[in-house]
Nucleic acid binder design. Structure first.
Length: 863
DNA sequence: TTGTTGACTTAGAACTTTATAT
DNA sequence: ATATAAAGTTCTAAGTCAACAA
């Protein structure tokens, strides 16, 4: 890799990754191009696909397009594709008993290793899928294979050169005991009761926590001075009205960024320096500061910026008039800001001290508030400064000018009896409200996307903590219900109504693949999707039951996985794809997130699509933590912890930009592998010199090592010799130093020369070996010894390769997001307790603060 | 029924501080 | 000591989801 790429800012490297994906980009482009952009783009309601309700054959797949009102699609489709019936589809519908649930809840699809391939095979066979065969002990349901390349050729096609790991997984059908398989009304009743039980249990747990609290570890009195007063989780009220968030709220308002101070640095236009009014200069500076980043090189960004910039310049009568982006040269400003950066870095101690002081003062003023008399931290009390909107992915508005927020636009929320903070001199607040059902302290409307911004309490505050606890309790609630819910949607996969089928299929994907709900998106947002908004081009199928997913999700992060899915899911998706079957059409054309969530609410109180993500993340984590070595070192335990964490991150597709220098680090390891291969090659050739007859018996000895280019070998040998010379010189000098100490005579310089000459001789030998391809045996070499060497090298190569993939995967997996948002912190706390690992090894100070409500559980606590 | 908006959580990038290698 | 990388923190964009309006 050129140093060029290493110097790229993170965003740029990430962009490259995003862009380095021809298939996706093409898809996106064609997708949006083909859509008629009429006002807000909600993708046109596609013609509906229906299953004939009267049709007894539940899989008859006879489709009729009931698209009386649906907008006509511009593309035509081969008529032949229209009414095709698939025999194999119907052949397999063996009645309502074919529940393909998994009885032991657990483990999302993308996770479980195939423990028992025999079992897996058996389960997969159709005859086994009837309801009579109740199995007490659930067989492993998931199969994971390391790579898809060999048996999933389609994956290769979709995959870019980037080594995205392709996971292949399988949910196995699982017969369910008949007693358990009764769904609907009876289940619902039962559920109600369990819920009640649950609540009391939760209460009990809390009680225990309280009791424990006293004796439990004093994790170091760190920052818990007045914890008792702040420990809301110790005395949670019973039937508090959930909608009321506080009874008293006092705060000091928000902090506005300082007014712009003109620096007078001139940009160039058409080669000439021009003077800009401060307001114009400020905006030019926004762009200048971003020069050479991916943003500034993005055409959309440039266009949007320039539109706003030139308009502003014109309003300020800038002369000459700025009409061409190409004629603009912002480098003087870029340099100015670079220099400023440098200055800041080189501040003296006093200056740094002063800056810190200033920050502290601000924190004191705005960073704290009083909620119900308790002192609480405020999160983002700084009003967002003006700048250029940095939309992610292909956001149509990226680069637009984000205006300075005026106090008149800002509304404050506080108690009626709280003093209203002073607005900045010469200004007034937009509004003062006293809404105790809202948690925000301040709000304003941002100009680029017309979205509402808020100032909230910090993550460690009671309000956030309470809703965090609630979130995880809901997820734990799902754990109790998941079995029958899964059985339910497995049954629904074969429902006659298309809508129900789609809903069930979506639930399957959300549950097993941890997909997001996927709300509809508007015209002027980046084209990203979640489950319900998947389009045809995002899913490809491969017989018998392999599904390739490739789409841009939240933040335009690519989701690219290959999974084995339940046969019925496979059929359904094929069915959904069959009728309009055009790119740009929704896969789930009858399904809206709102309907899905409404259904989920009926299954379980508080259940929404995102709960599955939380549940599966936490469950997986706890499950994987079982691999923690009982009597390992803390480091070994932490390794297990981080592995579990990483599994969750992969499940949720949490990615990050590959760090600077990563390519270099990888290159180093690859070189190491090559060096081993080089040695192996030498050993092989030596065997042939010792025993030429083996050429026939062991043809593998003749095969060249992969990835070992002649050039590289030559270079490598040069380096080896150079290193050898260095080593000899160093040793020589060291020896002489010792001799001096011992008052001995130093070795003559001629000695060194001789030694070095030997290296030259060796170099010549190597050159000859390279030329002839013959490696004469070294002293004492035998075939056996060489074989042993080769074996050792094989092992080393394998091991090094492993660290390579490990590193590769780690580099683009972000562990933080799942740790912060998805994994119940009580699992971690219990783990630390159980394995005697200090908390601060896994949670930073801010996280310990955020999760303080969770830190009192004992070692036996379970999610 | 559909579209819109408000309020909140989740997300990766960007920036800052600390640890580690040279 | 200084440079570099890694860890930790801040910032704000981009989701989810429910309430409300039309």
């Amino acid at each position: 890799m050129s140093s060029d790429s290493e110097d790229m800012p993170l965003a740029k490297r990430k962009e490259l990754q995003r862009a380095n994906n021809p298939s996706t980009d093409d898809n996106i482009d064609s997708g949006s191009d083909s859509d008629t952009p009429l006002g807000k783009r909600k993708r046109p309601a596609v013609r509906k696909r229906v299953l004939d309700d009267d049709d007894d054959d539940d899989d008859a797949d006879t489709l009729s397009s009931s698209d009386s009102g649906a907008p006509a699609l511009k593309r035509t489709r081969p008529a032949a594709a229209k009414r095709k019936s698939y025999k194999d589809d119907s052949s397999d519908s063996d009645g309502e008993g074919d529940f393909r649930g998994s009885s032991d809840s657990d483990v999302p699809l993308a996770k479980k290793k195939a423990a028992d391939s025999k079992n897996t095979k058996n389960n997969g066979s159709k005859t086994n899928g009837t309801n009579g065969t109740s199995r007490t002990k659930p067989a492993p349901k998931y199969k994971e294979e390391s790579s898809s390349d060999s048996d999933a050729p389609l994956a290769k096609k979709a995959a870019s050169k980037k080594t995205t790991s392709v996971i292949k997984t399988k949910v196995k059908s699982e017969p369910v005991s008949s007693s358990k398989s009764k769904l609907s009304s009876s289940t619902t009743k039962k559920r109600g009761k369990e819920e009640a039980d649950d609540k009391s249990k939760i209460k009990k747990v809390k009680k225990e926590e309280v009791d424990d609290k006293a004796k439990v570890k004093k994790v170091k009195k760190e920052e818990n001075e007045d914890e008792e007063a702040d420990a809301w989780w110790l005395n949670q009220k019973e039937n508090e009205d959930e909608s009321v968030k506080w009874t008293s709220l006092k705060h000091n308002g928000v902090y506005f960024p300082p007014e712009y101070v003109p620096h007078g640095v001139k940009m160039k236009y058409d080669g000439k320096s021009i003077t800009l009014a401060p307001a114009v200069e400020e905006v030019a500076g926004f762009f200048g500061a971003l020069l050479f980043t991916e943003h500034a090189e993005n055409p959309t960004f440039q266009e949007n910026f320039f539109k706003d910039f030139s308009k502003l310049a014109k309003a300020h009568k800038t002369s000459p008039e700025i009409t061409s982006f190409k004629k603009c040269d912002f480098t003087p400003m870029y340099e100015y800001y670079q220099a400023e950066r440098e200055k800041r870095k080189n501040m003296t101690k006093d200056q740094k001290e002063a800056a810190k002081e200033e920050k502290m003062a601000l924190d004191e003023m705005y960073g704290t508030c009083y909620l119900d008399g308790r002192k609480e931290k405020v999160g983002n009390f700084r009003i967002e400064p003006p700048g250029l909107f940095r939309g992610r992915g292909k956001h149509p508005k990226t680069g637009c000018l984000k205006l300075r927020v005026q106090p008149e636009q800002v509304s404050l929320n506080l108690s009626k009896d709280a003093p209203v903070p002073k607005a900045p001199a010469g200004h007034k607040w937009g509004a003062i409200v006293h809404d105790d059902t809202k948690t925000w302290l301040a709000t304003w409307k941002e100009n680029v996307n017309d979205s509402t911004k808020y100032v909230f309490l910090a993550a460690g505050s009671s309000l956030k903590g309470q809703s965090d606890l609630k979130k995880f309790e809901t997820a734990r609630g799902l754990k109790k219900e998941i079995d029958w819910i899964r059985r339910g949607y497995m049954t629904d996969l074969k429902d006659k109504k298309m809508f129900i089928r789609q809903r069930a299929t979506a639930m399957y994907l959300i549950d097993r693949l941890a997909l997001r709900a996927g709300n509809e998106k508007g015209e002027d947002e980046a084209d990203t999707v979640g489950c319900c908004s998947l389009r045809f081009e995002h899913v490809t199928l491969e017989k018998p039951n392999i599904m390739h997913l490739d789409f841009l999700g939240k933040d335009s992060i690519r989701y690219q996985k290959t999974v084995e899915v339940d046969e019925q899911v496979f059929k359904n998706i094929r069915l959904f794809k069959r009728e309009p079957a055009q790119e740009g059409d929704d896969l789930f054309d009858r399904l809206k997130t709102s309907e899905l969530n409404k259904h989920l609410q009926n299954l379980m109180k508080g259940l929404t699509a995102k709960v599955f993500r939380t549940y599966n993340a936490s469950f997986t984590f706890q499950d994987q933590l079982r691999k923690t070595p009982k009597d390992g070192t803390v480091a070994e335990k932490l390794l297990a912890y981080n592995r579990a964490n990483r599994d969750v991150a992969i499940l949720c597709n949490h990615q990050r930009a590959v760090s600077k220098g990563h390519a270099g680090q990888i290159g180093k390891i690859e070189d190491k592998v090559r060096a081993y291969k080089y040695q192996r090659m030498k050993q092989k050739k030596m065997i042939l010199s010792l025993e030429p007859k083996l050429k026939k018996k062991r043809p593998e000895l003749l095969e060249p090592e992969s990835d070992l280019e002649d050039d590289w070998v030559e270079e490598h040998e040069t380096q080896l010799m150079e290193k050898e010379r260095e080593r000899i010189k160093a040793k020589f000098e060291k020896d002489n130093l010792k001799r001096k100490e011992n008052k001995e005579k130093p070795m003559p310089a001629g000695e060194l020369k001789d030694l070095l000459k030997e290296v030259d001789v060796r170099a010549k030998e190597l050159a000859k070996e390279r030329r002839t391809g013959v490696v004469p045996p070294t002293r004492g070499a035998t075939v056996e010894k060489c074989n042993a060497q080769i074996l050792k090298l094989d092992e080393r190569i394998a091991a090094t390769r492993l660290t390579l993939t490990d590193k590769e995967e780690n580099k683009q997996t972000a562990l933080g997001t799942s740790k912060i948002n998805y994994i119940d912190p009580r699992i971690s706390a219990a783990w630390c307790e159980k394995h005697d690992v200090p908390l601060d090894k896994i949670f930073t100070k801010t996280l310990r603060d955020k999760f303080k409500w969770a830190m009192t559980v004992d070692a036996g606590w379970e999610f």
